Computed example of a mutant assay.
Amino acid sequence: MNLTRFSPVLTVAAISFLSLPAQAFSIGGNSSYTSNGLPTELSVNNEVHAPDGDTQFTVSNPSALNIGSLLLEGTLGEFGVTDNSIYTSISSYITGFQFLGEEATFNLNASETVLFGFANGSIFTLDSELSGDIIDLDGNILGTAVGSLSSVQSDNQIGNFFIDLEGTPINPETTDSQSVPGPSLLFGLIVLAISALWQPTKKLPE
């Protein structure tokens, strides 16, 4: 069985290739799932920040960056796909970053319009818009954020995960930069970028 491990260098290249909107906080990683259907729990490992000129979000200690697990629920359709999978709100879904120079966490709002598919036990896709609050370590709201998360896995390869956030400060006077709204990541472009950049680095016995 061939497993492809996520490479930070490839992640940065892939996200740059997609020409993300300005002021985007972009993170990539490896995704894994507890089952090949719903419900399933999505976990992310090997998180890496892809700097793209954003001046609001920073990561001073890359090893501290963490994305929590996400329980996806719902019922798959006849062809193993649904656009109505759901997840509940999650406190501290993303940790280990700074917003406007302050240590912060991202609290994820619940969603009920998640595209989820697992066809033939070999091709997994996940795509969702997301929103939430950016909180300092004392529980104060520093800002809000909207964006998207996507994941893709094919054959027996380790899945790749991407999340992209655009932040809006509660107090705009605390920063000279402005959040520039932009569209969600185009999932097809992600698939193309991953296909172009995946590179097997480790082989495990069957």
Rank of each mutant, 00 (worst) to 15 (best):
N61K: 07
N61V: 12
N61S: 12
P62D: 07
S63M: 12
L65F: 12
L65I: 12
L65Y: 11
I67C: 12
I67F: 12
I67L: 15
G68T: 12
S69G: 14
L70T: 10
L70W: 05
L71P: 02
L72Y: 06
E73K: 08
E73M: 06
G74R: 06
T75M: 09
T75V: 15
T75R: 11
L76M: 11
G77L: 10
E78P: 01
F79W: 13
G80L: 04
G80N: 06
T82S: 13
T82R: 01
D83R: 00
S85H: 03
I86C: 00
I86H: 02
Y87C: 04
T88F: 00
T88H: 03
I90H: 02
I90R: 02
I90T: 13
S91D: 09
S91T: 12
Y93H: 10
I94L: 10
T95G: 07
G96N: 02
G96H: 05
F99W: 09
L100N: 08
L100H: 01
L100G: 03
E102H: 11
E102M: 11
E102V: 11
E102S: 12
N107Y: 06
L108T: 06
N109S: 12
N109I: 05
A110M: 09
A110I: 08
S111K: 09
S111D: 15
E112R: 14
T113L: 14
V114A: 05
F116Q: 09
G117K: 06
G117W: 03
G117C: 05
A119M: 13
G121K: 08
S122Y: 06
I123V: 13
F124S: 03
T125K: 11
T125W: 09
T125M: 15
D127W: 00
D127M: 02
D127Y: 02
D127F: 04
S128A: 13
S128V: 05
S128M: 05
L130E: 02
L130Y: 02
S131K: 08
G132Y: 05
G132Q: 09
G132W: 06
D133S: 13
I134D: 00
I135V: 15
I135R: 05
L137Q: 14
L137A: 08
L137H: 06
L137K: 10
L137E: 14
L137N: 13
D138H: 02
G139Q: 07
G139K: 08
I141M: 10
L142D: 01
L142H: 01
G143T: 03
T144S: 09
T144D: 00
A145H: 02
V146C: 01
G147L: 03
G147F: 00
L149V: 07
S151K: 03
S151T: 05
Q153M: 09
Q153K: 15
Q153T: 08
S154I: 12
S154H: 08
S154G: 13
D155Q: 10
D155R: 11
N156V: 04
